[in-house]
Computed example of a mutant assay.
Amino acid sequence: MPDRTARDAFTRGVRALIPLIPGVIPFGLLTGVMAINLGMSPATTMGMTLLFYSGSAQMVALQLLNMGAVPMAIVVTALVINLRFIMYSASLAPHLHHLPRRWTWPVSYMLSDQSYALCSLKLSSGELGQYAHYYYAGTAVAMWLSWQLSVLAGVYLGASIPETWSLSFAIPLSFLALLVPGIRSAASLGAALVGGLLAVFAVDMPYNLGLVSASIGGVMAGLLIETVRQKNMSNALTDDVERDTQ
């Protein structure tokens, strides 16, 4: 059912993101604890969180800081890890590029895996209507606040949480919760399988390049499957036309 107002769309976006917050909280707690354990102050930790706004890149950067890596290596590694956002942005651009800069700049900054997964298919189908960008903004703002507050909680409370709770286990579960509803066709299934297999086999690649390789491989597999499907449909349609003309 199309949203009747911008507020309806924004609220629906927030509600769509809420079930994913339990998977975000452990990730943020771990990030906050790691930063404090490395000797960073709460202010520096939160400043880094605001600047990065990328959990995976921030955690890897913290690990590299702990290893004494040079600043340039940390910056390059973070950029490589975040290459997937180029693909996300290219996918969303046809639906959001018409917005003024007061919209595109903040929503670009708040782009996340979760927001993209929730919005990409809905934007492509057109089901969100004229207030689609408000729906996206709802997911983006809710995710941004969840991450910032989770890291802040980790800074002040996380150290008291027992390691036996295995909070890191919730991280892959949150991404699985995003993946499964998005598998709606042979192309998306093929992309998920190929990307997952590549991620497993390339897990030991340096600078987290396995993630980038898996993303590119999954996209290529999905495009190939969809191209073959459309070609088969075109051939079948041509055969039907020729049969009707005989």
Rank of each mutant, 00 (worst) to 15 (best):
H95N: 09
Y207M: 10
L224D: 00
V200P: 03
S146M: 12
G129H: 12
H97S: 15
G55E: 02
V151K: 06
A117G: 13
V75L: 14
S124K: 12
Q63F: 04
A57T: 09
P42F: 07
L198D: 01
L237T: 05
A159I: 01
L149G: 02
D204I: 03
S54W: 04
I171T: 07
E127W: 02
S188Q: 14
S112C: 14
S213A: 15
G210Q: 09
V151H: 06
H97K: 14
Q246I: 12
I25T: 04
M72S: 11
A73P: 02
D3P: 00
T31I: 09
R15K: 15
G129P: 13
P94I: 07
T238D: 11
K122T: 06
N232V: 13
V80Y: 04
M143N: 13
A73Y: 08
F85P: 00
P19K: 05
H98L: 07
N82A: 14
L152A: 15
G217I: 00
M110R: 07
V33K: 00
N37D: 15
F27V: 03
A69Q: 10
G190R: 06
V212Q: 02
F52K: 05
F10R: 12
I225D: 01
S120Q: 10
P206F: 12
Y109F: 15
S41D: 07
D240W: 09
P206R: 15
L209Q: 05
T5P: 12
A170R: 03
M46K: 04
G32M: 03
S146T: 04
T104C: 11
R15N: 05
P206W: 14
P94Q: 13
L167A: 02
P94V: 06
S108R: 04
G13S: 15
A236T: 05
T45F: 03
E163W: 07
Y156N: 03
M34Q: 12
F85I: 09
D204K: 03
R4K: 15
A9P: 08
Y53T: 10
I225H: 00
I18N: 04
M40K: 05
V219A: 01
G32S: 04
D8S: 12
Q130Y: 10
H133A: 14
G154M: 01
S185I: 05
M34S: 05
P162G: 09
G182E: 08
G39A: 15
M34L: 15
L17F: 11
Y156W: 14
D113I: 00
A132I: 08
A142V: 07
L145I: 14
L111K: 08
S166D: 09
S160C: 05
A69S: 12
L50W: 11
G196A: 08
T49V: 08
A236N: 10
P42H: 10
G23V: 08
K231L: 13
S41W: 01
V228T: 06
V241G: 03
M205D: 00
I18V: 15
P100I: 06
G39E: 08
L64G: 06
I216C: 01
L62T: 10
W105T: 14
L99C: 08
G13Q: 08
A16L: 09
A192H: 04
G138K: 08
G126I: 11
I25C: 05
G218M: 00
W147I: 02
M46G: 00
W103M: 11
P94Y: 12
G196N: 04
R101G: 15
